[in-house]
Design a protein around this nucleic acid. Sequence first.
DNA 1: CCCGTACTTGACGTTTACGTTAACGTAAGT
DNA 2: ACTTACGTTAACGTAAACGTCAAGTACGGG
Lengths: 128, 128
Amino acid sequence: MDDERTWSIAELADEYGVTLRTIRFYEEQGLLTPARDGTRRIFADGDRVRLGLVLRGKRLGFPLDEIKKIIGMYDAEPGEVGQLRYLLDQIEHRRAELEQRRRDIDATLSDLAELERRCRADLNRLTG
Amino acid sequence: MDDERTWSIAELADEYGVTLRTIRFYEEQGLLTPARDGTRRIFADGDRVRLGLVLRGKRLGFPLDEIKKIIGMYDAEPGEVGQLRYLLDQIEHRRAELEQRRRDIDATLSDLAELERRCRADLNRLTG
DNA sequence: CCCGTACTTGACGTTTACGTTAACGTAAGT
DNA sequence: ACTTACGTTAACGTAAACGTCAAGTACGGG
């Protein structure tokens, strides 16, 4: 099986539910670097994965330049020891950030659960 | 003990690490409604809590008008049955959103963990 | 050859969430 | 009386993340 399949910009946009403009903008920002056939963009599987990562980052509320850094970490060359230590440091930083977010989410979910309880109680009182 | 203590805009800004402008802007947007002593803003405990909720929403990447709606749900009057059903519906919607976010976070954390493993392996190879 | 469809690159418009002066009021300290 | 600290409103500026034209290119079908 060849996984040499490629996609047009419209196919990718359609698949991920974004506009063409969005994808072009991501390329302009260096988040995607599709190949070219003349002037046309050709997206390989790696590009699809990257787009998925970008959108996941967006759902998490990260700004695009942050997302760029994070994705950049994934495909950094092994490089020298200093680089590796720096990268590990960054990883730790991101992890802390994400764990803070998860705490915020859990707190909000718990607030919502409490709110729902009150709602259901009120509803029971009124319709019960 | 009276919990009648109040705060100035500067105290609140300082406590939460935001600027005065930010707080005034939140008021302008209807996210906060502090009392007044003449023209001066007087923040009660409820206002502090609300500011905390706003900032939590921000950390989660919600836009301010979304945050306004969510917070609005907390202090909605019990109201009529239709309102309650609508509110329960909204709660469900927010919950789904937050749970998607948590999945995104977990996926990212797992990516980071894998990346860290590879980093440590490389580091061992180089310094080992 | 013309048409429709898909693609391209500008370039300007828009919204959000504040930052940044500007110009002023008020109350306390010296 | 003067300064300093803290507050006010009004208004313009800005960066991010696209949306929205405008104008042109490339290609297969009829």
